[in-house]
Measured scan of single mutants.
Amino acid sequence: VFVDDHLLEKVLELNAKGEKRLIKTWSRRSTIVPEMVGHTIAVYNGKQHVPVYITENMVGHKLGEFAP
Rank of each mutant, 00 (worst) to 15 (best):
Tyr53Trp: 08
Thr31Asn: 13
Asn15Ile: 04
Ile32Leu: 06
Gly60Cys: 13
Asn45Ser: 06
Lys62Arg: 11
Lys24Leu: 09
Val52Arg: 06
Ile41Cys: 02
Thr25Asn: 00
Val11Ser: 00
Gly64Asn: 07
Pro51Tyr: 04
Val50His: 12
Asp4Ile: 02
Gln48Cys: 12
Asn45Glu: 08
Asn57Ser: 14
Asn45Leu: 06
Val33Tyr: 04
Glu19Met: 08
Gly46Asn: 07
Gly64Asp: 09
Gln48Asp: 10
Leu12Thr: 09
His49Glu: 03
Val1Leu: 07
Ser27Phe: 04
His61Pro: 01
Ile23Val: 11
Gly38Thr: 08
Val3Phe: 04
Arg29Val: 13
Thr31Met: 11
Leu7Arg: 00
Ala16Ile: 08
Leu22Glu: 10
Asp4Met: 02
Asn45Tyr: 07
Val52Trp: 04
Glu56Thr: 12
Leu12His: 10
His61Asp: 11
Lys24Arg: 11
Glu13Lys: 08
Gly46Lys: 09
Met58Tyr: 12
Asn15Met: 02
Gly64Leu: 09
Leu7Gly: 00
Glu65Asp: 07
Ile32Arg: 00
Phe2Met: 05
Val50Trp: 10
Phe2Asn: 04
Lys17Ala: 12
Thr55Glu: 14
Gly46Thr: 07
Thr55His: 15
Lys10His: 14
His39Glu: 00
Asp5Val: 15
Ala42Arg: 02
Val11Gly: 00
Ala42Cys: 05
Val52Thr: 09
Met36Lys: 00
Arg21Asn: 12
Ala67Val: 07
Phe2Asp: 06
Val33Met: 08
Lys47Phe: 09
Thr25Asp: 01
Met36Leu: 05
Ser30Ala: 03
Met36Ile: 02
Asn57Trp: 12
Asn57Pro: 13
Glu13Gly: 08
Lys20Tyr: 11
Leu12Ser: 06
Lys47Asp: 08
Pro34Leu: 11
Val52Glu: 02
Val50Pro: 06
Arg21Pro: 07
Val1Asn: 13
Leu8Met: 15
Asn15Leu: 03
Arg28Cys: 06
Ile23His: 01
Phe66Cys: 06
Ile23Pro: 01
Pro34Ala: 14
His61Ala: 13
Arg21Gly: 15
Thr40Tyr: 06
Val50Tyr: 11
Thr40Ala: 08
Val50Gln: 11
Lys62Ser: 10
Pro51Gln: 07
Ile54Gln: 00
Lys47Gln: 09
Met36His: 03
Leu14Thr: 02
Thr25Ala: 02
Ser30Glu: 03
Trp26Tyr: 14
Phe66Lys: 05
Phe2Trp: 15
Trp26Cys: 15
Leu12Cys: 08
Val33Asp: 03
Thr55Val: 13
Gly46Gln: 07
Arg28Ser: 07
Glu35Tyr: 06
Ile32Glu: 00
Lys62Val: 12
Thr55Asp: 14
Gly18Gln: 08
Val11Leu: 07
Gly60Pro: 02
Gly38Asn: 09
Leu12Phe: 07
Thr25Trp: 02
Gly60Val: 03
Lys62His: 14
Trp26Thr: 12
Val3Ser: 02
Glu35Gln: 14
Ala67His: 04
Phe66His: 08
Ala42Tyr: 03
Pro34Gly: 13
Glu65Tyr: 10
Phe66Gly: 03
Val11Met: 02
Val3Thr: 06
Glu35Thr: 08
His49Tyr: 15
Thr31Glu: 10
Leu22Pro: 13
Tyr53Ile: 13
Ile41Pro: 00
Lys17Glu: 06
Val11His: 00
Asn57Val: 15
Ala67Leu: 06
Tyr53Asp: 11
Phe66Gln: 07
Ser27Ala: 09
Met58Arg: 13
Thr31Lys: 05
Pro51Trp: 04
Pro51Ala: 11
Lys20Ile: 06
Tyr53His: 08
Lys17Ile: 12
Pro34Lys: 13
Gly38Gln: 13
Val33Trp: 03
His49Trp: 12
Gln48Gly: 13
Val52Gln: 05
Glu56Phe: 13
Gly60Ile: 03
Gly60Thr: 12
Lys20Asn: 04
Gly64Val: 06
Asn45Trp: 08
Glu13Val: 07
Leu14Asp: 02
Thr40Ser: 09
His6Tyr: 14
Phe2Ile: 05
Glu9Asp: 11
His49Pro: 03
Lys24Asn: 07
Gly18Tyr: 04
Tyr44Ala: 05
Lys10Val: 14
Val1Lys: 07
Pro68Glu: 09
Leu8Gly: 01
Gly18Ile: 02
Leu63Val: 04
Pro51Ile: 11
Thr31Cys: 12
Trp26Phe: 15
Thr40Asn: 10
Gly18Arg: 05
Glu56Asp: 13
Ala42Glu: 07
Pro34Glu: 12
Ile54Asn: 00
Ile41Val: 06
His61Cys: 11
Lys20Cys: 06
Ser30Gln: 02
Val59Asn: 07
Val43Asn: 00
Tyr44Gln: 03
Thr31Phe: 10
Gly60Lys: 08
Trp26Glu: 14
Pro34Trp: 11
Pro51Lys: 10
Val11Pro: 00
Thr25His: 01
Glu35Ala: 15
Gly60His: 14
Ile54Leu: 11
Arg21Val: 14
Lys24Ser: 10
Ile54Glu: 00
Met58Pro: 00
Pro34Gln: 11
Ser27Gln: 05
Ser30Phe: 03
His49Thr: 02
His6Ile: 14
Gly60Trp: 15
Asp4Gly: 03
Leu8Ala: 02
Glu19Trp: 06
Lys20Met: 06
Val37Arg: 12
Met58Gly: 04
Glu56His: 12
Leu22Met: 10
Arg29Glu: 08
Arg28Met: 04
Trp26Gln: 12
Val3Leu: 04
His39Thr: 01
His6Val: 15
Met58Leu: 14
Trp26Val: 07
Leu14Phe: 06
Lys20His: 11
Val37Lys: 13
Val37Gln: 10
Asn15Gln: 03
Ile32Gln: 00
Leu12Tyr: 06
Val43Tyr: 02
Ile32Thr: 06
Met58Ala: 08
Val3Asp: 04
His39Ala: 02
Pro68Lys: 12
Met36Tyr: 09
Lys24Ala: 08
Leu8Pro: 01
Thr40Gly: 07
Arg29Trp: 12
Gly60Tyr: 15
Leu12Ile: 12
Gly46His: 13
Val52Cys: 10
Leu7Val: 02
Ile23Phe: 03
Ser30Met: 03
Leu22Cys: 10
Leu7Asn: 01
Glu19Pro: 02
Pro68Ala: 11
Tyr44Glu: 02
Gly60Phe: 15
Arg28Phe: 05
Asn57Glu: 15
Asp5Phe: 15
His6Phe: 13
Glu13Thr: 09
Asp4Tyr: 03
Glu65Val: 09
Met58His: 15
Leu8Glu: 01
Glu19His: 06
Leu22Lys: 05
Phe2Cys: 12
Thr25Ser: 05
Val43Phe: 02
Leu22Ser: 05
Val50Asp: 12
Leu14Ala: 09
Ala42Lys: 03
Thr40Arg: 08
Thr55Pro: 02
Asn45Gln: 08
Val50Ala: 09
Asp4Asn: 08
Arg28Gly: 06
Glu65Lys: 10
Ser27Arg: 05
Leu22Gln: 07
Arg21Ala: 15
Asp5Thr: 15
His39Leu: 03
Lys20Gln: 05
His39Ser: 01
Ser27Gly: 03
His61Lys: 10
Arg29Leu: 13
Val59Thr: 11
Thr40His: 08
Leu12Val: 08
Arg21Ile: 12
Lys17Trp: 06
Pro51Met: 06
Tyr53Phe: 13
Leu63Glu: 00
His39Gly: 01
Val52His: 04
His61Ser: 08
Pro68Met: 12
Asp5Leu: 15
Ile41Gly: 01
Val52Asn: 07
Ile41Arg: 00
